[in-house]
Simulated assay, not measured.
Amino acid sequence: MPDVSPRPEPFTPKTAPAALEDLRARLRATRWPDLPEDAGWSLGTDLGYLRELVAYWADGFDWPAQEAELARFPRFRVTLGGLGIHFVHVRAAAQAGPVLPLVLSHGWPDSFWRYAKVIPLLTDPGAHGADPADAFDVVVPDMPGFGYSDRPTGPPLDYIAVAGLWAELMAVLGYPRFGAAGGDMGSHVSRYLGLDHPDRVVAVHRTDAGLPLFTGDPADLAPEERAWLGDAAAWGATEGAYAALQRTKPHTAAFGLTDSPAGLAAWIVEKLRAWSDCDGDVERSFTKDEILTNVTLYWLTETIGPSMRMYRANAAVAPEQHARRVEVPSGFSIFGGDVVRPPRAWLERTANVVYATEPPRGGHFAPFEEPELYAAELREFFRPYRSAAAG
């Protein structure tokens, strides 16, 4: 019989000049809202900073150069579940021992961009002062509705469905066993890889445990767990409006964010600032070029709408799914500048924790903010499981 298995095809996007001309025209025609004097970031994105960012986006930002920089990674597309999935696939530079395949899952509001800085550190540790034996084969897919992956035309996919796609992708690439890691939405995808594919996944690493969903008796929780539930609820009340909108009425916001690049930048940069370890100065964690590379990916692929719709899909995941415990070896690196950091007792309630650290620097986008620290965490955690993947 003929081979009908999915075949990855090399993929290198090239933006048409007309698309960039249209973007610049829209940026220059931005109609700005008013803002009370000295409001700063207290009401959302700061008007003065966004004006500065938009001016640079229109007349200083070099997207072709950033596009070429991203093209240094081998990138592919493959059809899985009827959807074209874009992914980066970089093999280990040298084999000084068993090479562990590793699938990295991103979150929102980003894409494969989240791991752009850390990929070389993981695939070629010897070139970056680390042990060559810790090299990984790295796979970084864009979730459906994000980046260069297809946008679902039907219902959006939830964490569980995406985990199933990633298990299929790793099989297509010839990896019967592999490690999984992620943060934000990617933390949940990695969790479900461990839950639903324990025969394939040797270990799971996460930088967060998501916001807590607990339907039991709070008296059964440790004091630090109850405190964390309170902290998470307080955070949701002051910072969670975006999530409530994206879970319930994402399409209403998508009209404006898809039409206005300034509006799109405002929506994303406020989260980059609020969730990173930047002490209120977003450019301590991201340069303007880095911010705008992320935002431009959303603009050119028109994926802000479908990326937000995934919140609605995830909100419908059955409560019993949230109560499942990951039994494959699990590690957590809870970076010091992240939001709503869970206590060890909660982590152990939800997973078979064999590794837990609290790196002092880095926030919600740790692979981008602190790539060296993040790479070191992955090397340390996954080191005992290399032979399991090879076997």
Rank of each mutant, 00 (worst) to 15 (best):
A274V: 00
A92N: 11
R349C: 09
P120C: 02
P74T: 10
S330M: 08
Y385C: 01
A18W: 02
L229Q: 12
F61V: 10
W275R: 00
P2C: 00
W235D: 14
E372L: 10
L245T: 13
R206C: 15
R379K: 06
A71E: 01
P250H: 03
P319I: 02
L157M: 09
W108I: 00
V340Y: 04
L23V: 03
E239V: 04
M1I: 03
E52R: 14
F136C: 12
L23H: 01
T238G: 09
P384S: 04
M143W: 05
M170E: 02
S330N: 04
L100W: 06
A244R: 08
A232G: 13
E67R: 10
E9V: 15
R26I: 11
G337D: 02
H188R: 15
E69P: 06
Y385W: 08
D259A: 11
R200G: 12
Y385S: 03
M143D: 11
E290R: 04
G48C: 06
P74C: 09
S190V: 05
E348P: 10
R26H: 14
E348F: 11
R273G: 02
G256C: 06
P98L: 10
A71I: 07
E52H: 11
D142E: 00
W275L: 01
G84R: 15
Q95C: 05
A233M: 03
V118E: 00
A55F: 05
V282M: 08
G129H: 01
F332A: 00
A68T: 11
S330V: 13
G97R: 00
V88R: 11
Y159L: 06
S330K: 13
F381W: 02
D59R: 07
L70Q: 14
T293H: 06
K288S: 11
R349F: 09
L195S: 13
P33E: 12
R151E: 01
R7M: 08
G280H: 04
F112Q: 06
F112R: 00
E21S: 09
I334G: 10
G44S: 10
P144I: 14
R309E: 04
L121T: 01
L100C: 07
Q321T: 10
G236D: 10
W108L: 07
T153S: 12
E270L: 02
D46S: 13
H322N: 12
V103Q: 06
A316T: 11
D259F: 07
W113E: 03
E358H: 15
D38Q: 14
T357I: 11
R284L: 12
R284Y: 07
A167K: 12
E225G: 11
L165F: 12
R273K: 05
G362I: 02
L169H: 03
H106L: 05
L122C: 05
R24L: 03
A375Q: 05
T258N: 15
I119P: 02
M310F: 03
E225D: 10
D277T: 13
V354E: 15
G362R: 09
